[in-house]
Nucleic acid binder design. Structure first.
Lengths: 170, 170
DNA sequence: GTTTTCATGTAACGAGTTACATGATTCT
DNA sequence: AGAATCATGTAACTCGTTACATGAAAAC
């Protein structure tokens, strides 16, 4: 139920079309909340129907620019302050760990080595992303920087853990 | 698509009924792959239809005991060795971070303080769980211990990050 | 004999994915 | 003129959640 809030959040910065939002997802939110094109257009229609956003302008090629309404902003704030985040369960990566005894120790260690590599690659990608952006003092930079730092720490933690885990398997 | 593999994995230890598996999910896999009763019975039917598991015994009250077939074990091994884990995206917690500028700095800091507390609570719960189990040298203990260590490290990381993040918000 | 536990299933709905379908406009 | 990009939408399907429904057997 959070795609709607992701869209409201992006529209709180500035009005945008579905196409714009699609692009912005790719660059900023793809890591924390991926969404398909199909899903976004559907959700935007629903948001417009429920009055949380409105069509503020029409452009060429049927372009519809959406703007956050007062109700939409209220809903966004309500979500941020009054509702508790659901903890993030369901990890394919971790699920596999429970069944590593089904394969050979060599295969298990190889799986954990892959995880280490994956973590390193993601860490590196985030580091490059951090370098490519010139961070200002504006709120968006601060928030983006905080989210990115999470990614860096997360991948560092996961790399260390996978190394430790590989060592546990005898 | 991993619930099926979670079920195959649990059945690789020993045969069990849907009801048994439901109980075992609660204690072991609930943290990494929660599933509802409804979902599990449906998935077990599908697995039986496709021949990856079979009904090995019938008990009182319509109890059906399922056993992993050779094809099922092969599929489980295939999943573990040949397929790449999908990285874990979609974090409600992190999504909110992107929009903290929409609320007041005080509210934002309060949100991060909640996250710190949540991480501490989960860490503590896992620590208690670790203490309550007498870990042996058997494969299941090793795997369970590895998964649990992940949880401990993850929550420690998240707590530190939230503390750091709160400090970034001025 | 009543409550608890065991045990399985279905229906309706919401969220997410893949694929298909269409067409206007801008760029080269 | 043709290719790339902009731009939106729908259909079919899978996965996951909530709620409903049922009843046998064991425990007290």
């Amino acid at each position: 139920m959070s795609l709607r809030h992701a869209l409201l959040g992006l529209l709180s910065e500035r009005p945008a079309s579905g196409y714009d939002l699609l692009k912005r997802f790719e660059t900023s939110l793809a890591n924390v909340w991926p969404a398909t094109q199909s899903q976004m257009y559907t959700e935007l229609s629903k948001l417009a129907d429920s009055g949380l956003i409105g069509v503020s302008a029409q452009g060429p090629r049927g372009r519809k620019e959406y703007t956050l309404t007062d109700e939409g902003l209220a809903e966004l704030r309500h979500w941020l302050t009054e509702t508790k985040p659901q903890r993030n369960t369901r990890s394919d990566i971790l699920l596999r760990v429970f069944f590593l005894n089904v394969i050979t120790p060599d295969q298990a260690r190889s799986y954990l080595a892959e995880l280490m590599e994956l973590s390193e690659q993601e860490h590196e990608a985030l580091r490059r992303l951090a370098d490519s952006i010139d961070w200002g003092d504006d709120p968006l930079s601060v928030n983006g920087r905080i989210a990115l730092e999470y990614g860096l720490r997360f991948n560092a933690m996961r790399r260390e853990w996978a190394a430790w885990a590989a060592d546990q398997i005898r």
